[in-house]
């Protein structure tokens, strides 16, 4: 009497995913550790603008508005100390009268960067597009 014994069909070998998981874990840790998650923006400090190349800028005859930034970060216009919100309102009023008014920001050398950014922020919120930062060169 013969008994036919069937062999079980050979199992298909699957591709091992263990090494892929290892590589992905290493990549994951790499990106988690090396990345910074600060939300950062920028304000332009130097731009090669078209207007600079054109020579005489439009509205050259208008009196510019000078905003001083003192060492304690306070803003003043024509000797009058203003809060950033008042400064913004004043710039907005001037721009409503003459939209091409140039705004000059004159920071004290000892003023912290936050003071200068505060002034630039107020002026930008007011809608000024022609803003310059000026400084006095020290003579040796």
């Amino acid at each position: 009497m013969a008994i036919a014994l069937r062999r079980p069909p050979p199992r298909r070998l699957g591709v091992s995913v263990v090494s892929m998981i290892d590589v992905m874990m290493i990549l994951l840790f790499f990106f988690m550790i090396t990345s910074s998650y600060l939300n950062l923006d920028m304000v332009p400090a130097l731009e090669k603008s078209e207007a600079r190349l054109e020579g005489a800028a439009p509205g050259a005859g208008l009196a510019p508005l000078l905003i001083r930034v003192s060492a304690d970060s306070s803003l003043s216009v024509q000797g009058q100390k203003l809060s950033p919100a008042d400064c913004e309102a004043m710039v907005a009023r001037r721009l409503a009268e003459a939209p091409l008014t140039e705004v000059l920001i004159f920071p004290s050398g000892a003023a912290p960067l936050q003071g200068l950014v505060l002034a630039m922020d107020a002026v930008t919120r007011a809608g000024a597009t022609r803003v310059k930062v000026i400084r006095i060169e020290a003579q040796p």
Binding site: E47, A111, P112, L113, L116
Partner: peptide, 27 residues
Amino acid sequence: QATPVRVILGLVNRLEAMGAENVAIVV
């Protein structure tokens, strides 16, 4: 944010003198 403005403006001036056309302050 506490760096004196004279340091930053000095750097921007020197970068401009070196030919840089696009400088931004990170905020």
